[in-house]
């Protein structure tokens, strides 16, 4: 918590230093924003979801009455430490590059006997309707807290996925001519007052990726990376890709590869 507070204060100081050059009014806004961010960092509702996810992980459930404790997220059956930080990853048993969510669903289907439709029906929460996936991913993510993102994409299938993600990142279409790149491909820009990172660099991608899953104050819910990216598509005014679509896994591979080496701070808390 102390580290978070120091970071927020340092961030606020830098922000204020930049804003100071612009006008007094701007720096007042910056101060208010810094206060808001500081308040956010103090106690994260995602911590509760993490505890719930831990319970779901070890509970015997589904037609096979089995827990997820033998689920292999890439580090071996039941090995959770650092698993999130090293995903997406190529899996031999499915011959696919999978992210944390597609792999988790795979485990719920193969180990617990659920159908894919059953487990993904509530892939994100709505008011009054909780999502097991959100809780499990928050729990799995927290097991990588403090560890470095590690997706070098050295396996040919991973390298290919990262390249395909790059393609989607630059692909422009729709009634606003958007692509991911037009907002997230340059340094030091803002949309309204929101800072934008350059996701093609380690710094920018690292800042973006290290805090997921994240509690979104504006949404009152924890969002997974799938949820986040599918919403980006909505904001670009495109149709929504399917949950667990390969194109979303490809974008994640591209972003995690760029972010590799950045220390995870998860679960995060955001606007």
């Amino acid at each position: 918590m102390n580290r978070r507070l120091i970071k927020t204060l340092v961030g606020a100081a830098i922000f204020a230093a930049f804003a100071g050059g612009v006008s007094a009014q701007d720096s007042k806004v910056a101060d208010e924003l810094a206060k808001y961010r500081e308040a956010l960092a103090d106690g994260n509702p995602a911590d509760l979801l993490e505890v719930k996810g831990e319970g779901l992980w070890s509970e015997k459930r589904g037609p096979k009455n089995a827990s997820l404790e033998q689920c292999d997220l890439g580090q071996g059956p039941g090995k959770l430490e650092g698993a999130y930080a090293a995903l997406p990853k190529y899996f031999k048993d499915t011959n696919k590059v999978m992210d944390v969510e597609s792999r988790l669903v795979h485990c719920m289907v193969t180990l617990q006997g659920f159908t894919q439709a059953e487990v993904t029906k509530q892939w994100f929460s709505r008011p009054g309707k909780e999502s097991d996936i959100e809780a499990l991913v928050t729990f799995i993510g927290a097991k990588s807290n403090g560890m470095k993102i590690n997706v070098p994409a050295t396996h040919p299938e991973e390298a290919k996925m990262a390249k395909m993600g790059e393609y989607i990142f630059y692909r422009r279409s729709g009634p606003q001519d958007f692509s991911c790149s037009i907002c997230h491909g340059q340094e030091g820009k803002r949309i309204r007052l929101q800072d934008l990172g350059n996701l093609t660099t380690k710094d920018g991608a690292g800042t973006a990726m290290k805090t997921w899953p994240s509690y979104r104050v504006s949404q009152g819910a924890v969002w997974t990376m799938q949820r986040r990216l599918i919403d980006c598509m909505r904001q670009a005014r495109w149709p929504e890709p399917n949950y667990l679509a390969d194109s979303i896994v490809a974008l994640e591979t591209f972003l995690q590869k760029n972010a590799t080496g950045t220390v995870m701070e998860t679960p995060g808390i955001k606007r």
Binding site: K163, Y167, R171, S173, P175, P239, E240, N242, S247
Partner: peptide
């Protein structure tokens, strides 16, 4: 992999998307 990536992206969407929505993916 550009061609394959385009194919992958275009097949990422539900079949019951209205046609008018899907035209937004055309370039």
């Amino acid at each position: 992999f550009a061609k394959e990536a385009e194919q992958m992206f275009r097949t990422s969407f539900r079949a019951d998307n209205p046609k008018y929505w899907m035209t937004r993916l055309e370039q």
